[in-house]
Write a protein that binds this DNA or RNA. Structure first.
Lengths: 338, 338
DNA sequence: CTGTTAGCGCCTTCAT
DNA sequence: ATGAAGGCGCTAACAG
């Protein structure tokens, strides 16, 4: 009743264990006849490899470590969907950890993951601690940073410029005649801060910058928090005529609060969200948002790991910018021209 | 520069490897003096255990396998958050797989997970194949089914009755005077079908049952699909006066489409969602929904695994019903009495 | 193309 | 309370 091993399979097929091992890992190095015999023996005995033994002997595992800052965030579930879709037909498995936007916690998680000899690491952002970065440099597997872009990735980065995405959005709002545009930011993680910087750059460029237009909170984003933030914003800045939000949930909350207050969107007040998670496009009026290629980022990250482990060389371009798309909708369209 | 092993730590501390191993796993069996020496040696060398070796030698791992039907689903990200919160201070790690609502795929994933000698398995629902169920019965670790309830779990189940939750919601709508209540179901997974059964039972009981009131689609739920489904529903059943949705996103989409059509909610049309994911409560009017204890389910599942592995006996009550709460809001309140 | 040998790092068992 | 011996199942390295 005990679980069969390679030796058992080998005995059944009349070959040695190592041949079975080869038939599984490098079938082209084993003759067709043997492959067939071995495969029958495997089925007959119900053999399933022991990954712990494989990992111990070879000093590498089939585990891809994924470090995200939050589970309850559609952004990262989309990334994970993409990664999973690419990986599920392969032998890799996904082990995840939630860093909770905490670089120190992240460091510990990286240390633990490194001890697994992972087949790859996918990690959100570029703001790792020095120690984290060193571990990621030293680990003997592909490492993909995601959701951001930089000239100096640990290995490779797949993402987009949060700064540019924000700047593009705010430029659009300015072009639509909005002047007193607030920045509404929740949680204020590094990527949100980059969006804030993009907002600020454009506002300064147009001499519209005003420190009182920043509305931020360390709380996580939600529709509810969006509603509350709008109330606070209108108290503080009564002549505010629009918002750029770091997140779609907040934008939806603000839109719903505008409905309640009969604040005319887009005429009196413009709203722009971020990520284009799906609800924004359905609102009345539809909300402008920045589409970000989350699923594709997850897919590309996984594919990179597969390719490198299959022997592909490290590519020359190590920052893969997948861009973003400003989805202009009614909530910021005053001129009718886009 | 090679990674230190227990032997290296032992040499540094002047003890044998096995003593270091004990100091790590069963500190109470090692004298205080040695523990201190060993812990210094570990820090000095930067020793991190090799989980593959541990797993191979002991025939069990620290991996908790989590099988969910979807990543892009707030329900399961909440469960995962709860599980992760309980597990993150422990030595366990989480390995996830996405079954895609496919029992055959699920079977393969279980087979693979079982080969890891996991420390626990968390799996959504009760509709596993016979082969899956057998593997889960045979695996030598705690197994927790979640998001449902049954008298006959594989090991333990933590969830709530989808049938009762739906029945309670529909009873409420009937009490509020709605008569031509439609069931709007997306994806039609097993739990959705139970909700449909709960709806049907109540409609039959009140002699309100009508087969044309079922609107279903295999597509995944979204705000957008909700809007389209309402359009189809009103074409097909013009006198329809309310909907019970299997999902909040769909309910939100329907509410937004009602806004657009100037269909008065709750007066002319009642809307009830499912799961109470957060946006429903913020809508205009606020949408009634069934709150489900998703985070707590994830927490309890993880805690059960920890407890059993710490030697706690299998509890007598093996189906842990955490219930649900109908959150009555404006979208179904015609009488003002709740 | 196939086999032999020798571990990988840790834990189980048994001894002291 | 600590240690010695042996093996978990697999694969790297080298033979043939």
């Amino acid at each position: 009743m005990k679980r069969p091993t390679l030796i058992d399979v080998g005995r059944e097929a009349g070959v040695s264990a190592i041949t079975v091992s080869r038939a599984l890992r490098e079938p082209e190095k084993v003759s067709k006849a043997l492959r067939d015999r071995i495969s029958k023996a495997i089925d007959k005995l119900g053999y399933v490899p022991n990954p712990a033994a494989a990992s111990l002997a070879s000093n590498r595992s089939s585990i891809i470590a994924v470090l995200v800052p939050s589970f309850s965030n559609n952004v990262f579930s989309d990334v994970l969907s993409g990664t999973n879709a690419v990986l599920e037909k392969t032998g890799y498995s996904i082990q995840i950890a939630n860093t909770g936007y905490n670089p120190i916690a992240e460091e510990g998680m990286i240390r633990k993951f490194v001890s697994l000899s992972p087949a790859g690491v996918i990690i959100a952002g570029v703001d790792q601690t020095a120690a984290s970065r060193k571990m990621l440099k030293d680990v003997d597997c592909p490492v993909v940073q995601i959701m951001d872009i930089t000239d100096d990735p640990v290995d490779v980065i797949v993402g987009f410029s949060n700064f540019d995405a924000a700047a593009t959005s705010v430029e659009h709002m300015v072009a639509q005649g909005y002047r007193r545009i607030a920045f509404v930011g929740t949680r204020m993680d590094p990527r949100t801060q980059q969006r804030m910087a993009g907002y600020e750059a454009v506002m300064r460029k147009h001499q519209l910058y005003d420190a009182s237009l920043f509305i931020t909170t360390p709380q996580k984003s939600s529709v509810e928090i969006g509603r509350h933030l709008l109330a606070g914003l209108l108290d503080k800045v009564p002549d505010c005529d629009g918002v750029f939000c770091n997140n779609d949930d907040v934008a939806v909350g603000i839109a719903l609060e505008c409905q309640r207050r009969n604040l005319a969107v887009p005429e009196a007040f413009g709203i722009c969200g971020f990520n284009d998670l799906g609800t924004t496009s359905q609102m009345n009026p539809a909300i402008t948002s920045v589409y970000t290629p989350r699923v594709e980022i997850g897919e590309r990250a996984a594919q990179y790991i597969i390719d490198r482990n299959a022997g592909h060389p490290k590519p020359e371009v190590r920052n893969i910018d997948l861009g973003f798309t400003l989805k202009v909708r009614a909530s910021t369209l005053r001129t009718g021209t886009g």
